[in-house]
Write a protein that binds this DNA or RNA. Structure first.
Length: 998
RNA sequence: GCUGAAGUGGUGGAAUUGGUAGACACGUUGGACUUAAAAUCCAAUGAACAUUAGUUCGUGCGGGUUCAAGUCCCGCCUUCAGUACCA
């Protein structure tokens, strides 16, 4: 019987679906294990071979855990709100829900055919109203909460109102907006409802505020910082500008410290934790206020080196700083204004790219040193960022390189306040070696002591205190898009009101057009039925808005990360209509034990999700405050692009033929399409080849015609040379030996129909290969569907793992799949031959048992270390050995199947059933490793001379060191190596090696 | 610049606490089977030298520790990813 993988795989996929083999129960005697993949956005292009890499790894782990006796939750779903469907809707008018549905169907078919052990009964889709109902619900919880710094947790807003009623806000220790006005209990009682609401917004964990946002005019939407790459939008590459807008924001800054501390408790990769740490950007230091001379103003700065306060020789403000216009003297006004104008013109990008150029201007004003009362000149410079800290720094040139460079450039004094530091060339920034000098009461102190002392002194003077700063900014939560979660919010007199949770979900309204409105409102502004009736509690027509009982609804929608910030909790109880998950389910599953996904989500999804989890934990909704114990980043599978070289006309001499440039461009259009292989290109074209040389070398009729058609009065034919132009060829036209299917290529595009190919002497045409990201535009996408048809899902699964370590980036090369496919055929033959099953009850040989147990040991270690590539090799070795041993023993072969089943589940199920089992192999106990089968009596010792291995010698393992030494020295080959010399030393490591020195 | 990861045959990659470098595959070459192809099987395959035995060199580069270094230490180089003047 042949290994008919197509039939076998179909059969078992149907079996698993029918029997709900992988359905996880929320009650079980078994210990729980939750394996999660980062759910995909269902794009229109479907899956390519790079996508399933992480899913295969997690599937192997999930299946392994089932064999280990765990109740495994391994769900999958779709992050189905998103920009591509909306863009498609804008172009075609097709409703995004329909596109999304179609795309999901494709994804599901592709996922099913790879044989994943997902529990599809728990599928979630973020765009499904039954799901986003709970996303809206969480939003309402955030709105109704404030962060109590004393309790260090989120609390219901009612507790804050109570405090306001009793004592106003003067003593409240809350995370809130920067500029909150103080009020008393009496003030509060006489505030209007609107005033009270406005105040509360400054404390809520999600709040409406005028924020400077990254506005992308082309997309008509706001982008988060991590959605912008190099100053343009991540999707589409459109320009982005800064703009002030009223937006919903999430007060993630309240959780900065807990998000940082929480990293200690979770087993995530170091690089990922490091990214999050940098993103949170904690710095400990002090806030110091400096009085401005002859003004009522003060300059507040944040510094991490308050110990260096006596080294301040100037202050620097960001050019955008509010004080600049107030304190600049009339003499300096012109210069300062010119500077501000110049920096405003420089785009953010230029400022970033060009950090070397030092610019700035003197305001003419002086601040007063809090201790010495000396005047300190106040400068502005664009190396100080308006958005960080207070937008002002106390500049200590002797201790900070940027201040140092600035001072040098503008000839500002650089006082040295460090004992024994040389600051003639650069600033001295080493905290550990710092001993303060020339600093009054700080003299002789080290960094730590000085910092403590100076903060105490500043507090005494009332002009400073210790402070911790975070780089982490509150996250903008509004998007001017259609295809996202609507907010459960309506507006009364401009103040946002939450719709009662009982009336959720608020479903996305229908719109005519998915573009922003003509008045610049978000797409929901096009909806005609988008008003809230507070009496009937339903969405009604906009015409009925009377601002008495019927009010307008929010027009923004939520960002992509809303739905993905809590989906892992929904899987625990995905079909619950009463709650986002039952308490029972949440308490049973608790958290994700293993989360696998890409590292690109380090500071987006993975930070926001931790934030929401901590919030939900504070509210008592979830039992743990970190949602994933362990996280692994899978690397990316890259494409191997294929290139052909297109010969183009180049003109070497442009000076004398200035007037005929246009003619040359014309000529290039009529120039025949000549394609050559990389070898030919290397051989001939890398050196400049002239038109006539080319024509001589190859007989190309079209080239003749072309040469005849050239008007030699306009151009000099002898001045024409060739350049190359690498063009992508679709990888499906190229075989394993890099040879191009010329006919297929010609038929691919109209422009290549009559192309001339310069082939090798043997008629072949070789492409140039280069590794690039796998993408449609590079024509290097390999579709898993075809692989499954040609080799089967088990081959695909094994091969993806075989390619290399999970976390590494590695190129795909379809040719290599024959290796693992051949392995599966060999495996099959071990069980089944032309006469049917060849497995019997014969006793296993010692060799076979040794092979088996060595395999069990290695595979178990590999899975637990997520080293899946090496276990595939281990299987190959095992099958090669068992084949050579002619093993037919059921005792051995049955166990081997269980080992392989997480990797190649279809073939394992099939052979398992052929061995006479009626139940799925999926929960059969994992084989137990028995060391006794590996015990050896002898060892093939490598015998080295001066560290170089010369020959091996089989010796008993129980032989003593002395006997080994004697035996080896007596050996004729040893004598041959020594050639009469006496060894100086003989190293014998029993069981390992013998090394003879001399 | 900083942070993190990584550099091993023609290619993907193996290699426990330092202990036979290149496992397992792909590719290539030769052979068997076949009318032929596919499939399958066998053999060779790091480089150089040598008829053979074998020798020398080899894990990015330069040093060092050690009986022994891909692995440990010091100093560099390169690539990839993240980050961007964070006071």
């Amino acid at each position: 019987m042949k290994y008919d993988f197509n039939q076998i795989e179909k059969k078992w996929q149907e079996y698993w679906a029918k029997n709900q083999t992988f359905k996880a129960e929320n009650h079980s005697e078994k210990p729980k294990y939750y394996v999660l993949d980062m759910f995909p956005y269902p794009s229109g292009a479907g899956l390519h071979v790079g996508h399933p890499l992480g899913y295969i790894a997690s599937d192997i782990y999930a299946r392994y855990k089932r064999h280990q006796g765990f109740n495994v939750l391994h769900p999958q779903g779709y992050d189905s709100f998103g920009l591509p469907a909306e863009q498609y809707a804008i172009q075609t008018g097709q409703h995004p829900a329909i596109t999304t549905e179609t795309n999901i169907a494709t994804y599901r078919r592709q996922l099913d055919q790879i044989g994943f052990s997902f529990d599809w009964s728990r599928e979630v889709r973020t765009s499904d109203p039954s799901y986003y109902k709970w996303t809206q619900w969480i939003f309402i919880q955030l709105f109704n909460s404030w962060y109590n710094n004393d309790a260090n947790k989120a609390e219901d807003i009612s507790t804050l109102i109570k405090i306001f009623e009793i004592e106003g806000n003067t003593k409240v220790n809350a995370v809130c907006d920067d500029a909150v006005e103080m009020f008393t209990a009496e003030d509060w009682s006489v505030f209007s409802s609107k005033e009270q609401q406005a105040i509360l917004l400054q404390y809520r964990l999600t709040y409406l505020a005028e924020t400077e946002v990254n506005w992308c005019p082309a997309l008509g939407t706001v982008l988060a910082n991590d959605e912008i790459v190099n100053g343009v939008s991540e999707r589409g590459g459109h320009p982005v500008v800064r703009k002030k807008m009223t937006q919903w924001s999430m007060r993630i800054s309240a959780y900065a410290e807990r998000l940082l501390q929480g990293l200690e408790a979770i087993d995530w990769t170091d690089s990922l934790k490091e990214s999050q740490r940098n993103w949170i950007g904690k710095s400990v230091g002090a806030a110091v206020t400096f009085n401005v001379k002859n003004h009522d103003e003060v300059i507040e700065v944040f510094t991490t080196r308050p110990d260096t306060i006596f080294g301040v020789s100037f202050m620097t403000l960001a050019p955008e700083h509010d004080l600049v216009s107030k304190i600049t003297t009339s003499e300096q006004k012109a210069e300062v204004e010119a500077y501000i104008e110049a920096t405003a013109k420089r785009s953010e990008r230029e400022r970033m790219a060009d950090v070397k150029t030092i610019t700035g201007a003197f305001t003419g004003a002086y601040a007063e040193h809090p201790f010495t009362k000396e005047p300190i000149p106040v400068w502005i410079g664009d190396y100080v960022l308006a958005g960080y800290g207070t937008g002002a720094v106390m500049s200590v040139p002797c201790g900070d390189q940027r201040d140092y460079d600035f001072a040098k450039h503008f000839n500002i004094e650089i006082p040295n306040i460090f004992e024994g530091a040389d600051i003639s060339e650069e600033a001295f920034a080493d905290k550990d070696k710092t001993i303060i000098a020339n600093s009054d009461f700080l003299n002789g102190l080290n960094y730590k002591e000085a910092t403590k002392t100076v903060i105490a002194e500043l507090e005494k003077l009332g002009c400073g205190q210790g402070k911790t700063n975070y780089r982490l900014r509150d996250a903008v939560f509004s998007r001017q898009r259609y295809w996202g979660e609507p907010f459960p919010v309506y507006y009364v007199d401009g103040m946002p009101q939450m719709i009662d949770a009982a009336h959720l979900p608020i479903q996305l309204p229908e719109v005519e057009k998915y573009l922003p409105t003509e008045t610049g409102e978000p797409p929901l502004g096009n909806a005609t039925v988008w008003a809230w009736n507070t009496e009937t509690n339903e969405v009604v027509s906009n015409d009925l808005i009377d601002h008495k009982t019927i009010f307008p609804l929010e027009l923004n929608t939520m960002p992509g990360w809303a739905g993905s910030s809590w989906y892992f909790n929904r899987y625990m109880d995905a079909n619950n209509t009463e709650a986002f998950a039952s308490e029972e389910a949440l308490n049973y599953w608790k958290d994700v034990d293993l989360y696998i996904g890409g590292s690109e989500h380090a500071t987006g999804h993975l930070l926001y999700a931790r934030f929401w989890q901590k919030f939900l934990f504070d509210k008592g909704v979830v039992p743990v405050d970190e949602f994933a114990k362990k996280l692994i980043n899978q690397g990316m599978i890259l494409g191997t692009s294929a290139f052909v070289f297109r010969v183009t006309l180049m003109w070497v001499d442009t000076v004398h033929h200035r007037g005929s440039r246009e003619y040359l461009e014309e000529l290039n259009k009529s120039f025949p399409t000549i394609l050559c292989s990389s070898d030919t290109y290397q051989k001939y074209f890398s050196e400049e080849l002239s038109l006539f040389e080319l024509n001589e070398k190859y007989d190309i009729p079209e080239l003749d015609n072309f040469i005849c058609s050239v008007d030699t009065n306009k151009v000099d034919l002898y001045k024409l040379y060739f350049g190359d132009n690498m063009i992508h060829a679709d990888v499906s036209f190229v075989n394993a030996s890099d040879e191009l299917d010329i006919e297929a290529f010609k038929n691919w595009r109209e422009e290549y129909k009559n192309a001339e190919f310069i082939t090798e002497d043997d008629g072949t045409f070789k492409v140039k290969r280069e590794v690039e990201k796998m993408s449609k535009s590079k024509y290097n996408v390999v579709n898993p569907d075809q692989i499954c048809i040609d080799y089967g899902a088990d081959s695909l699964r094994l091969y993806e793992m075989f390619l290399g370590p999970l976390e590494q980036y590695k190129p795909w090369n379809t040719a290599g799949i024959t290796g693992v496919h051949g392995f599966l055929k060999k495996l099959w033959k071990l069980y089944v031959d032309d006469n049917g099953l060849r497995v019997d009850d014969s006793e296993a040989s010692a060799d076979s048992l040794k092979t088996l147990h060595k395999t069990i040991k290695k595979v178990q270690e590999d899975i637990e270390n997520f080293s899946f590539n090496t276990s595939v090799s281990t299987f190959m070795i095992a099958v090669n050995e068992l084949t050579a041993q002619k093993c037919t023993s059921k005792a051995v072969l049955e166990q081997l199947l269980v080992l392989i089943s997480p990797y190649a589940p279809h073939i394992a199920e099939e052979l398992w059933s052929q061995l006479g089992h009626n139940e799925s192999i999926s929960t059969v106990a994992f084989p137990k490793f028995d060391e006794s089968h590996l015990v050896e009596s002898s060892k093939n010792y490598p015998i080295s001379f001066n560290g170089k291995m010369r020959f091996t010698l089989e010796l008993p393992l129980d032989m003593s060191k002395e006997d080994i030494e004697k035996t080896v020295l007596a050996h004729e080959k040893t004598q041959e190596q020594l050639q009469g010399r006496t060894p100086k030393k003989v190293i014998v490591v029993p069981g390992k090696i013998v090394n003879i020195v001399g």
